[in-house]
Design a protein around this nucleic acid. Structure first.
Length: 261
DNA sequence: ATTGTGGCCTGCCCGC
DNA sequence: TGCGGGCAGGCCACAA
């Protein structure tokens, strides 16, 4: 599903959409427009303009609209894809159909040169917004410092995994990356976030960055070592122990009862 | 303020 | 063969 590695791939693809005049905006489903803005207003802000820059904060893409003091925000939910001129940012998405069906094109920009940028999202869990609240997101998981991570965990009674997935604390970590990171760091997902020793916070910081590096290199959040074992009967790739399943932070969680403590 | 829960949304898969 | 129920989780509103 789209977590930080996928959105980073989308960001790189989206650079091909910069400096091109938006000739037309097509909203495939009005529910895909989030926040206070109407589809009409969003279209009016974008039409005739162009994007000066695009950046990623966690799982959010932000496009700067040139000379209009507005920003386009794009979220991808768990089944959203980005296409620019027919090229997909990511080929495979776990839990999402890999069919190409234009009925799922929820938001399309047609450029003056005939090209297109499309957000294709079967489930409609993503969305586009005008001037997204970037300040509501915590430090990006890829560049978070040890001190920042320590600060975000300190004093919290919430389960460690829930804290990791809280986008206002740390931006970019979703369910699969949380399981993979905690498995690599040898930490139990249900522990209170504030209960980690300083050495454990350091270990988590190391493995968070290392895990993201590995997944970016492999090309997807679903390419972690534990992901194929996230099923009944699945075993820990490290020590062969049968993995346990529970629900933490409202999400299915798999972990090794032997080496995660 | 913090933490937890339910709902949205729809493709897919399994069992009957 | 068709059908219904369950499942997947990012995000948000709302409750305690």
């Amino acid at each position: 599903m789209p977590e930080l590695p996928e959105i980073e791939a989308y960001r790189q693809l989206a650079e091909h959409a910069l400096d091109r005049r938006v000739a037309a905006v097509h909203i495939g489903d009005p529910r895909f427009v989030r926040g206070d803005v109407t589809p009409q207003r969003l279209s009016a802000v974008l039409r005739g303009g162009s994007f000066q820059a695009v950046r990623r904060i966690g799982k959010l893409l932000v496009f700067d609209v040139r000379e209009r003091d507005h920003r386009l925000g794009v979220r991808f939910g768990m089944t959203g894809r980005l296409l620019v001129d027919g090229v997909q940012g990511v080929e495979q998405l776990m839990y999402a159909s890999n069919r190409a069906d234009t009925a799922w094109d929820r938001f399309t920009l047609r450029f003056g040169d005939g090209g297109r940028m499309v957000v294709r999202d079967p489930r409609l869990l993503g969305g586009v917004s005008l001037d997204p609240d970037e300040g509501a997101l915590g430090p990006d998981a890829l560049t978070i410092t040890l001190a920042q991570l320590r600060h975000q965990l300190a004093g919290s009674a919430a389960p460690l995994k829930a804290r990791l997935m809280d986008q206002s604390r740390i931006a970019g970590v979703g369910n699969l990356i949380a399981d993979e990171t905690l498995w690599r760091a040898g930490l139990v997902p249900g522990r209170p976030a504030g209960s980690l020793s300083d050495a454990e916070v350091r270990r988590l910081h190391t493995h968070l960055r290392r895990t993201l590096g590995v997944l970016l290199r492999r090309g997807g959040s679903h390419l972690g070592d534990i992901v194929p074992q996230r099923r009944p009967g699945g075993r820990c790739p490290r020590d062969g122990t049968e993995l346990r399943r529970s629900t933490i932070g409202g999400r299915t969680t798999w972990w090794c009862p032997r080496h995660q403590r």
